[in-house]
Design a protein around this nucleic acid. Structure first.
Lengths: 118, 118
DNA sequence: TATACTGTTATATAATTATATAACACTAGA
DNA sequence: TCTAGTGTTATATAATTATATAACAGTATA
């Protein structure tokens, strides 16, 4: 789901955009050959400057996720979708955490720390 | 566990420092009254400039996590530790993901997307 | 009191990130 | 061919982030 960038998260906007589009590909919501919305539409969706969109698309292109056709649009270049099993594991975990009314930021902090320490 | 900042993650160094220290508090590894390492030691641990450490400590102070005593040091101001149950849920999830040899970056991307969409 | 630790304040410089704005080039369809 | 939509390139400006470096101020202890 492509959504507004969080301008207070500290993470650069162009990286948030890269991450959202990568997520869509990983989750299988954007498949090989799909066309992205136009740059000027993406600019509105993410609520950033056109140059910020361009910077994100440039990075995705350099990493092989998308390709550009001048005058036509941007297209998904490869499928990178992840094993459904992985998604289920994460969905189950997120559901449990939400049951315990933990907030996203705290959850991420602990997730990162646990990951890097075990 | 306080460790070197990742200079290629895109996340500003001072925020990574804030996050690491918050994590230690949330996990109960730093408790009320504990003294942090000195600024000049932290500078070496995180591998950043002293001003970057200061910016992080300033933010933690403004959020009520720590307090300063001039000439003495920085101290944890409150306990914010999280329910052990939460930590167990996350540990279990991380273990399962590692069993499936998924990398950290992919895991975080999916985690964020699942959290924000369900 | 002298010293070696603490934290604090300040200035200058550079790289990165984001914005505003404009113009240009290619493509598809009326 | 004209037009409206694509992507592309460019310039200028500002805010944020990070560095290097120096000096100052408080605390504890030998």
């Amino acid at each position: 789901m492509l959504r507004k960038v969080d301008k207070h998260s500290g993470v650069p906007a162009y990286l948030q955009i890269v991450n959202m589009i990568k997520s869509e590909i990983l989750l299988g919501n954007l498949q090989k050959g799909s066309q992205l919305s136009s740059i000027r539409e993406l600019q509105q969706i993410f609520d950033v400057n056109i140059n910020t969109v361009l910077k994100a698309l440039e990075k995705l292109k350099s990493e092989g996720y998308i390709e550009a056709e001048q005058g036509v649009g941007y297209f998904i270049k490869k499928d990178f979708d992840v094993d459904k099993k992985i998604i289920e594991i994460i969905k189950t975990c997120v559901a449990k955490l939400k049951d315990n009314s933990i907030d996203y930021y705290t959850a991420i902090l602990i997730f990162e720390e646990v990951w890097k320490n075990e």
